[in-house]
Nucleic acid binder design. Structure first.
Lengths: 186, 186
DNA sequence: AACCGAACAGACAAGTCTGTCTAGTCACTT
DNA sequence: AAGTGACTAGACAGACTTGTCTGTTCGGTT
């Protein structure tokens, strides 16, 4: 194998990811993935035995890319307080690029997929994000209006609320408001 | 007409509403609605010319019931501050009953329905809820850590974030945390 | 030279989807 | 008595769904 099976398998996952997010998982058919990825039907089922497997791979890939993007975004920003505020910018910027369709993970949960593997991945993603916030909070010498745990949850809730409302209003307004609110007790 | 066409039409909408929320709009077929509502196919299309019409009726009905329920919940609670905190209890209690499947409106938006009528209704619902919060905030003599607009947005964001996270974790934890956080600057 | 994994094209199964249409029943109104 | 609106049952169209299966090609390894 010249390139070890990478190209086709990746093209499948990239195409599926784009369609799952833009159109929704249930509204995306195998046929459309095959056509847009320009691969053969059997190739898809060779790499991903079922549509559910493809969904789980989508969640894993999104999780990885998400944190990779976050790390890259955080690189030039120094200081825990600055970084906490940058979290809002990160998500706002990302949502602008994604046309305010909301969080990948909450979207999948909202589609009423009862697969336990899906929930596990969604929870793992959010839990890791909360931990990321917490680690910054303990480093920051904030105003101590709230203890570390509570400040973490406040920021977490503001971030998630801002994205959720952004998806409904199709705009950055509430994510930006959330940031201004966060600034006032950091 | 003995009962003016009410029974069948309502049974359709009730059944559709339950299924749309529990299973998702796209995963609910006309056939299932017909079967579970125990009505004839032509009756459904007589009252709702298309599935989209049924969806819009579902959103309207949910909006109405939502605020009716809220009013009933608020009836025994006096004082604006108490009522602001009761908003958290209202949504937590409701989500418990709904098995933490999240906000009806954000769920529909997450299913990638591009109909403008859907967005209009979602925004109208959320806007009215924010206004409801605002009206209580101006009455409350809060600690003025934040001005009225900002306090409104904070509570709004905490509420929406709590429900969104509740749907992903399938539990009341973050909605309850959101309430405790709200108490600290009311 | 034989084999194998990865890719291709495309037919096929068995079921689902929304929406239309026919045909007929019943209760109420004019 | 004729007509109307709400309802029933169920056939039908045409498209789409996921997944299987056959058969072929090609590059690389043993």
């Amino acid at each position: 194998m010249r390139e070890p099976g990478v190209k086709v398998k990746d093209r499948i996952l990239e195409t599926a990811s784009r369609l799952f997010y833009d159109q929704g998982y249930n509204q995306t058919g195998i046929n459309q993935i095959i056509e847009e990825a320009d691969i053969a039907r059997a190739s898809l089922y060779h790499h991903y035995p079922s549509k559910t497997d493809l969904l789980l791979a989508y969640l894993d890939r999104t999780h990885e890319l998400w944190f990779k993007e976050l790390e890259a975004f955080m690189l030039p920003i120094h200081g825990p307080k600055e970084r906490l505020l940058a979290l809002f910018d990160f998500r706002t910027k990302r949502q602008l690029r994604l046309k305010y369709k909301g969080c990948h993970f909450s979207k999948i949960v909202a589609e009423a997929c009862e697969d336990e593997g899906v929930f596990d991945r969604v929870r793992a993603h959010k839990e890791r994000f909360r931990q990321y916030i917490y680690d910054l909070v303990v480093q920051a010498d904030h105003r101590k209006l709230l203890d570390n745990e509570m400040l973490t949850d406040t920021l977490f809730l503001l971030l998630e609320g801002g994205i959720a409302l952004g998806a409904m209003y199709r705009g950055p307004d509430y994510a930006e408001k959330a940031k201004r609110i966060a600034m006032s007790f950091l």
